Simulated scan of single mutants.
Amino acid sequence: MGAPRLDAIDIRILDAIQRDGRITKLALAERAGISPTPCWTRLRRLEKAGIITGYHARLSLRLVAPVASILVEVTLASHRQTDFERFERAIKLLPEVTSCWSVGG
């Protein structure tokens, strides 16, 4: 069972909630061009189908807490593929690490 087919109204609903996750039901229905009850039904269908996975707030981390970028060099003792894979698995467990690059040459 794949994702449900999306029509133009579904696309307008998705566009509107991506732009404003706190949009009211009435405003969402107006943007979608349909009445509130069918709009709400469509929204719930999109959520149940997994197309809408959540509603989130974007935070300004610089206003919440001081942020620093730190660049660290890590040298592996061996350049075997298994060592790179083990390092990659370990680094992915650290939520404070936001980027990781491999540099050679």
Rank of each mutant, 00 (worst) to 15 (best):
P66G: 13
R31I: 07
K92T: 14
R89I: 10
R44M: 08
R44H: 04
D10Q: 02
L76C: 02
G21R: 05
L28H: 06
E85P: 03
D15K: 15
I91N: 09
I23R: 02
E47C: 05
C39L: 04
K92C: 06
V97C: 03
F84D: 13
I13E: 00
E30H: 15
K92L: 07
T24H: 04
S60P: 05
L76A: 05
L43E: 12
R22Q: 12
Y55W: 04
L63K: 04
R44E: 08
I91Y: 12
I70V: 00
T37I: 02
L46S: 13
F87G: 10
A27W: 04
A27Q: 14
I11W: 02
L6Y: 10
E96Y: 15
L93K: 11
P95A: 03
F87S: 12
V72P: 11
I17F: 01
R19N: 15
I23S: 06
R42Y: 00
G50P: 00
S102I: 10
V74M: 12
G33C: 02
G50H: 00
S78H: 14
L59E: 11
A8H: 10
A57R: 02
P66T: 04
R12I: 03
R42C: 02
I51P: 01
I70G: 01
V72I: 10
V74Q: 09
L61D: 12
K92Q: 09
V72H: 11
D20E: 13
R44S: 06
V103K: 11
S69Q: 03
G104I: 12
I13P: 04
A32R: 00
A29F: 05
